[in-house]
């Protein structure tokens, strides 16, 4: 059909190109200007710092008014001293390492188990009918409920702790992947089929990337559940051969009637949770959502 075109067609073609280019310039969505680093700091870091300062001030004021006895409400400075002492003696690093390494290892194993499980539930109708609702139910079961059973089955061993962590995080990760796959617009797999994708290449090039936001949300929740389950297991299953984790540290604080130690432990547990969220999951999620133009929730 490539016939030589008469001059008036070329003329019309050029006019068309100009109109098209004008439309492109007018209709393309405006891009948000990226904020400067200083503005970003001002908008994201200052509010939580101010909130933390206020909290600390209220605490100090409550302690100074001496409504509660010292063994119930310690001074902020006393808690800080406890934390500083454990950091200086090297105990803090060891305690954190014991707990964080357990949580990370448990989480990774959970990812390896939950990913194929989620794919199976999402894509095979019989599997979904059989265990789909069971998995959702397990997600709402507090993982601390598994601790007694784990101790009876595995004794006071690391296996018991890992078992509880897995029971906590596998359902969240698998459910996240399932809902990620369920939320894929049905047109996309059809388009993939029309473009020549087989079953496997469709999973690799269409399904998995399309389900990534939901999967990532599942991973984030899975991490939170594995951290929580680990703390529950460590607080209840305490024994010398299990080593000293954050949960045991908290438990020891209670046994010693040392409120500063208890609050220091809670503070460290929070610190790890927030740290992993800010350093790992938040940037990952931002990158994935920004690439898809889903920046509404990010601010």
């Amino acid at each position: 059909m490539a016939t030589p075109q008469p001059p008036e067609t070329l003329e019309a073609d050029r006019g068309l190109a100009a109109v098209g280019a004008g439309l492109d310039a007018l209709d393309a969505p405006a891009q948000n200007r990226r904020k400067s680093p200083w503005q970003r700091f001002l908008h994201t870091a200052v509010p939580p710092i101010v909130a933390f300062g206020l909290l600390l001030g209220t605490w100090q004021a409550l302690w100074a008014s001496a409504i509660w006895p010292e063994f119930q409400l310690p001074a902020p400075a006393a808690v800080w001293d406890t934390i500083w002492a454990t950091v200086q003696s090297g105990d803090a690093a060891e305690i954190l390492w014991t707990s964080v390494s357990r949580a990370v290892l448990g989480f990774l194993v959970a990812v390896i188990i939950a990913t194929p499980l989620g794919l199976l539930i999402a894509k095979v109708r019989v599997v979904r009918a059989a265990i789909g609702s069971l998995l959702t139910g397990l997600q709402s079961l507090p993982s601390v409920a598994w601790v007694p059973a784990a101790i009876l089955w595995f004794g006071l061993t690391p296996s018991a702790i890992y078992f509880v962590v897995l029971m906590g995080s596998v359902p969240s990760i698998a459910n996240g992947l399932v809902s990620g796959i369920d939320q894929i617009p049905p047109l996309l797999p059809r388009v993939g089929q029309a473009l020549g994708a087989g079953k496997l290449s469709s999973a690799r090039h269409i399904l998995l990337p399309a389900a990534l936001p939901g999967y990532l949300a599942g991973l984030k929740q899975g991490w939170a559940f594995s951290w929580r389950s680990l703390m529950a297991a460590e607080i209840i299953a305490t024994s010398p051969q299990l080593g000293l984790g954050l949960g045991q540290f908290l438990h020891n604080g209670q046994s010693l009637n040392d409120i500063s130690m208890v609050i220091a432990a809670i503070f460290l547990i929070l610190l790890v949770g927030i740290g992993i969220e800010l350093l790992l999951f938040r940037p990952l999620e931002r990158a994935v959502l920004r690439a898809r133009g889903l920046t509404g929730a990010l601010g």
Partner: peptide
Amino acid sequence: EAGGKRPHELSGGM
């Protein structure tokens, strides 16, 4: 010119 853009950065016609 628009090869590097993501779908959400393009107009409906583009």
